[in-house]
Simulated scan of single mutants.
Amino acid sequence: MPKAYWIAHVDVRDAAVYDTYRAANAAPFAKYGAKFLIRAGAQQVHEGAAKPRTVVIEFADLATAQACYDSPEYKAAKALRDPVSDADLVIVEGYGD
């Protein structure tokens, strides 16, 4: 079964408040076995447009990635993020095993 990924591009307007979101999302990410592959490292945009922060999180499979996003724990964390950031997020199934 292929792994799945959250791929997010985020523009943060208030870093201090965003840090409360990061603290709050630790519990659901641990519960669903999330593994950060990219977390806001340096980036170069070569085509199109992107927000300043890119995040890629790996999950065991698509169902687990979706369950994490839909969980009450993540929804509570997301409520902290929404007022201080703009994000584009896709949940995508990986290729192969």
Rank of each mutant, 00 (worst) to 15 (best):
D97G: 12
A65N: 12
D14R: 06
Y74T: 08
V90Q: 07
S85K: 08
P72M: 06
M1N: 03
A34C: 04
Y5K: 03
P83K: 04
K78F: 15
A27P: 01
R13Y: 15
Q43W: 09
V45E: 07
R13S: 15
Q66C: 06
K3S: 10
C68D: 04
G96T: 05
A76K: 09
W6D: 08
Y21K: 00
R13C: 12
Y21W: 02
Y95F: 15
A79Q: 09
S71W: 04
A49Q: 15
G94N: 07
E73L: 05
F59W: 02
L89H: 11
A79D: 13
A76W: 06
K51P: 00
A8P: 06
I91P: 10
V90S: 07
A26H: 10
S85N: 03
A8M: 09
A4Q: 09
Y5V: 00
E73D: 15
V45L: 10
T54I: 00
L80E: 12
S85Q: 05
P28M: 02
A40M: 10
A24M: 02
W6Y: 14
D70Q: 06
I38S: 10
G48Q: 06
L80T: 13
G94E: 11
Y74N: 13
A65H: 03
A76T: 13
F29T: 09
F59C: 02
T54G: 03
F59P: 03
Y21H: 03
A79N: 09
N25T: 08
K51M: 01
H9A: 12
A40S: 12
P72D: 15
D88M: 11
I91S: 06
D82A: 08
P28R: 01
K78Q: 13
D88V: 14
V92W: 14
S71M: 02
T20V: 04
G94C: 08
F36W: 04
Y32S: 08
K75D: 00
P52T: 02
L80H: 08
A87S: 14
G41K: 06
N25C: 07
N25P: 01
A24W: 11
K35F: 08
R22I: 13
G33Q: 11
K51I: 01
K75S: 09
A23Q: 15
A79V: 09
A27E: 13
K35C: 01
I7E: 12
N25Q: 11
A63T: 03
K75V: 04
I57P: 05
N25F: 10
G96E: 11
A16D: 15
V17E: 14
L89P: 06
I57Y: 05
I38W: 03
D70Y: 00
L80Q: 05
P2Y: 14
Q66V: 11
A23D: 13
A87P: 00
P28S: 04
D19V: 01
R39I: 02
I7V: 15
T64P: 00
A76I: 02
L80K: 14
V84M: 00
G33Y: 14
P83V: 05
D82G: 00
V12R: 09
G96R: 05
A40C: 11
